[in-house]
């Protein structure tokens, strides 16, 4: 049967193709991640993927929806990967599983599945974990080159699944506060920016190691732009606004406010700019709306990082802006052909 009515032609494209390209674009970031932090992240990715697919299948079954098209569309995998990449790579297994379950079951399927979720599922999962298990969420491993002790893959597996460390090692030996966290605490102790930044965990652009991963995400983002999976509006508005606020305040008081490059290349800023904030389902659709949405995330991220209670504000910034999407869309309708503005 050909199409019921014209057009009878269609471009060779599909939802699963878009999702596959997003996954592909994440590969450089994952590779950099493994190189910097070790292969523990692969375990998280696998855990999240399996959890996402199984929970998606169960929910589809319960909701009486066809399994094949929705499991193969790849959207659950994208959510799983984004969440896993946002979590600490040595997080206990149940943290990954609980987060993914919440993202898929509540944030996605209970709202109606693919295309119907008003909030970014990965960020909902992340926010729930951050509020519920703050300690586990802040246990980040130090980059390999700074770590006092290097864990083998087997040791990492033991730690992830059993919280068992090789004898003689403590948690503090393998984990450290993140640079954003350190910055916040140190600033509270009235240390100067230059002193803080002198610590080894801070790199040339952002944070040691983290900046390499961020650079790899940027590379993936360029690929997505080239493939026209995403448009430039959200990343440019988000990163631009973040950089603008950071440089403005940095110029006023360089001792209290970190510079723009540090903000761009630390935390989840790059991941968010190209992979999270660009989620079409929970974002606005008009070009102007995308600019407002991106800029809003930029402002909120900077505000939360600078004055908020959490070291990184990307997840909350995205969720808060998700709430505004219908309003943004309604007020940024472009001028239709043949109409006055």
């Amino acid at each position: 049967m050909m199409a019921m009515a014209s057009p009878y032609l269609s471009e060779q494209t599909s939802v699963s193709m878009i999702m596959r390209k997003v996954l592909l674009a994440l590969v450089p970031g994952i590779a950099a991640y493994v190189w910097v932090y070790g292969s523990g992240i692969l375990v998280s990715l696998l855990l999240a993927s399996v959890t996402a697919l199984v929970s998606e299948a169960v929910m589809l079954k319960l909701r009486g929806r066809p399994l094949r098209p929705f499991l193969l569309d790849g959207s659950a995998l994208v959510t799983a990967w984004l969440l896993a990449l946002a979590l600490p790579p040595i997080a206990p297994w149940w943290l990954v599983v609980v987060g993914t379950l919440f993202a898929i079951v509540v944030a996605k399927q209970l709202y109606g599945g693919l295309g119907y979720n008003p909030f970014n599922p990965a960020m909902v999962g992340y926010a729930v974990l951050l509020i519920s298990f703050p300690v586990a969420m802040t246990q980040w491993p130090a980059p390999l080159e700074l770590a006092q002790a290097k864990l083998s893959l087997l040791d990492q597996l033991r730690y992830i699944f059993g919280r068992v460390l090789p004898s003689g090692l403590t948690v503090d030996a393998i984990s450290s506060a993140t640079p954003l966290d350190t910055l916040k605490t140190q600033l509270k102790l009235h240390h100067g920016m230059a002193d803080i930044m002198a610590a080894p965990m801070f790199g040339t652009l952002g944070t040691k190691g983290g900046e390499i991963v961020a650079g790899a995400y940027l590379l993936g983002g360029v690929y997505l732009l080239w493939q026209r999976i995403i448009t430039w509006h959200v990343p440019v508005a988000f990163l631009g606004m973040l950089a603008l606020l950071a440089s403005g305040c940095h110029l006023i008081d360089a001792d209290r406010y970190a510079g723009p490059l540090f903000h761009l290349f630390s935390g989840a800023a790059m991941l968010c700019a190209f992979f999270i904030a660009t989620d079409p389902v929970s974002g606005p659709t008009t070009p102007k709306g995308k600019l407002i949405f991106g800029a809003g995330i930029g402002i909120l991220t900077w505000v939360i990082r600078t004055w908020g209670g959490y070291p990184d504000g990307v997840a909350f910034a995205v969720l808060l802006m998700n709430i505004c999407v219908p309003l943004i869309d309604a007020y940024t309708q472009p001028r239709v052909f043949g109409h006055e503005k």
């Binding site: 049967m1 019921m4 009486g64 929806r65 066809p66 399994l67 094949r68």
Partner: peptide, 10 residues
């Protein structure tokens, strides 16, 4: 109204 043939759930 566009209606699609429903395929059996595999």
């Amino acid at each position: 109204y566009p209606v699609f043939e429903i395929k059996a759930v595999s």
